[in-house]
Measured scan of single mutants.
Amino acid sequence: QTQEFDNEEEARKAEKELRKENRRVTVTQENGRWRVTWD
């Protein structure tokens, strides 16, 4: 699953929550947008 964010702060917040659920999370930056991908 993927979700896009406008800034790193929001993306990192989402990453932190997903990691609490023991998910594999990848955060990438593309064209000024932050993308959080998880399984």
Rank of each mutant, 00 (worst) to 15 (best):
residue 21 E to H: 14
residue 25 V to F: 02
residue 21 E to K: 11
residue 23 R to F: 15
residue 35 R to S: 08
residue 1 Q to N: 14
residue 21 E to W: 08
residue 9 E to A: 14
residue 29 Q to F: 15
residue 17 E to G: 06
residue 9 E to T: 08
residue 9 E to S: 09
residue 27 V to E: 00
residue 14 A to D: 01
residue 25 V to P: 06
residue 28 T to F: 08
residue 19 R to Q: 11
residue 32 G to I: 01
residue 6 D to E: 11
residue 21 E to D: 11
residue 2 T to D: 05
residue 25 V to R: 00
residue 30 E to V: 14
residue 21 E to I: 13
residue 39 D to E: 15
residue 22 N to E: 06
residue 30 E to Q: 10
residue 23 R to H: 15
residue 6 D to K: 05
residue 13 K to L: 13
residue 38 W to M: 10
residue 25 V to A: 04
residue 5 F to R: 00
residue 18 L to P: 01
residue 13 K to Q: 12
residue 17 E to C: 07
residue 16 K to L: 12
residue 23 R to E: 08
residue 31 N to T: 03
residue 10 E to Q: 10
residue 38 W to N: 04
residue 28 T to K: 06
residue 32 G to H: 04
residue 34 W to V: 01
residue 2 T to G: 06
residue 36 V to H: 01
residue 23 R to P: 09
residue 29 Q to P: 07
residue 8 E to V: 04
residue 23 R to K: 14
residue 4 E to F: 15
residue 38 W to R: 03
residue 19 R to N: 08
residue 19 R to G: 06
residue 10 E to I: 03
residue 18 L to A: 08
residue 34 W to P: 00
residue 27 V to A: 02
residue 6 D to Q: 06
residue 25 V to Q: 00
residue 31 N to Y: 04
residue 6 D to G: 05
residue 19 R to F: 07
residue 11 A to E: 00
residue 5 F to S: 01
residue 33 R to Y: 10
residue 38 W to D: 11
residue 15 E to G: 04
residue 10 E to N: 05
residue 37 T to P: 01
residue 13 K to F: 10
residue 35 R to Q: 12
residue 30 E to S: 10
residue 33 R to Q: 08
residue 12 R to A: 04
residue 11 A to S: 02
residue 26 T to A: 08
residue 18 L to G: 03
residue 28 T to A: 06
residue 10 E to K: 05
residue 12 R to E: 03
residue 34 W to E: 01
residue 25 V to L: 02
residue 14 A to F: 15
residue 9 E to P: 07
residue 23 R to L: 14
residue 20 K to G: 11
residue 24 R to T: 14
residue 5 F to I: 01
residue 12 R to G: 03
residue 20 K to D: 11
residue 38 W to V: 15
residue 4 E to W: 15
residue 28 T to H: 07
residue 20 K to A: 15
residue 19 R to T: 08
residue 33 R to K: 14
residue 33 R to W: 08
residue 38 W to F: 09
residue 1 Q to M: 13
residue 1 Q to W: 14
residue 35 R to V: 15
residue 5 F to N: 01
residue 6 D to L: 08
residue 33 R to A: 06
residue 34 W to S: 00
residue 18 L to W: 06
residue 24 R to W: 13
residue 27 V to R: 01
residue 10 E to H: 05
residue 13 K to N: 11
residue 23 R to Y: 15
residue 20 K to Y: 07
residue 18 L to K: 05
residue 26 T to H: 09
residue 30 E to P: 02
residue 9 E to I: 10
residue 31 N to F: 05
residue 35 R to C: 10
